[in-house]
Amino acid sequence: MAFIDRECVRQLIEAPDPDAALVFVRGDCVVLPAAEIDDAHQGLVIIRRRDLTAQLHGDTITDQQLDLLAERLDNVVHDMGA
């Protein structure tokens, strides 16, 4: 079962806050602005927007790139014990 899909990744990339993060909360992945990531959520951060965008190359992001990133990030969630 995948926890992260292409749309999760797209939402993070399009987040207006450059410090936003994809966070695993109660079985769901949500994009939170940096100001909403408190101590309780800090250990649940999968990736921050700035770190994700550093992995992207080119001006156009394809669905294939999004799927590949989603698969990698989904592995991170599974490694967290989900």
Rank of each mutant, 00 (worst) to 15 (best):
T53W: 07
G58P: 12
G81P: 09
L12F: 09
E7N: 10
V23M: 07
V76I: 14
Q42G: 00
A54N: 13
L12N: 12
A34I: 04
D63F: 04
C8S: 14
D28L: 04
E14H: 08
T62S: 14
V23F: 08
A54H: 14
M80R: 14
A54S: 15
I47Y: 00
A82Q: 10
L22T: 05
D28R: 13
V76M: 01
C29Y: 03
F24S: 00
D59I: 00
L12G: 10
D63M: 03
L68A: 15
I46N: 03
D5L: 08
F24C: 06
V77Q: 05
L12T: 11
R49I: 03
L66V: 12
R10I: 04
Q64W: 13
R6T: 13
D5A: 09
H57E: 12
L44W: 06
A2K: 15
R72I: 01
A34G: 02
M80E: 10
L68T: 15
I46D: 01
L73Y: 13
M80A: 08
M1W: 11
L68V: 09
I4D: 00
A21S: 12
D67N: 12
V23K: 05
L52C: 04
A54I: 04
T53K: 10
L52A: 06
Q11F: 11
D5F: 05
D19L: 13
G81E: 07
V77G: 04
R72W: 03
A40C: 13
I47N: 00
Q42K: 11
H78N: 06
V31G: 04
L52Q: 08
L22D: 03
L12I: 13
E7T: 11
D17H: 06
A34K: 04
Q11M: 08
A40G: 11
A15L: 05
A2H: 10
R6A: 11
D51F: 06
Q64D: 15
I61S: 04
L56S: 07
L66M: 14
P33S: 06
Q64R: 15
E7K: 09
T60S: 05
A21V: 09
R50Y: 03
G27I: 02
L22Y: 02
H78R: 14
D74V: 03
V9I: 12
D74L: 02
C29G: 10
D39K: 10
H41A: 15
A54L: 11
D17S: 03
L22N: 04
A54T: 12
M1F: 11
Q11W: 11
D63L: 08
T60Y: 09
D28H: 06
D28E: 13
L44K: 14
Q11P: 01
A34P: 01
C29S: 08
I47W: 00
A54P: 12
A21T: 08
L73M: 12
D38R: 13
V76K: 06
A54V: 06
L73W: 02
L69K: 11
G58M: 07
E36Q: 15
L56A: 03
I46A: 03
A54F: 11
Q55C: 07
D38T: 08
I13H: 02
R48M: 05
E36P: 01
R50A: 00
A21C: 08
D39H: 08
R10Q: 15
D5S: 07
R50N: 01
H41W: 12
Q11S: 14
H57N: 10
E36S: 14
R6W: 00
G43D: 14
R10N: 13
I4L: 06
E36V: 07
G43C: 05
V77H: 05
V77E: 04
H57I: 03
P33L: 02
V45Q: 00
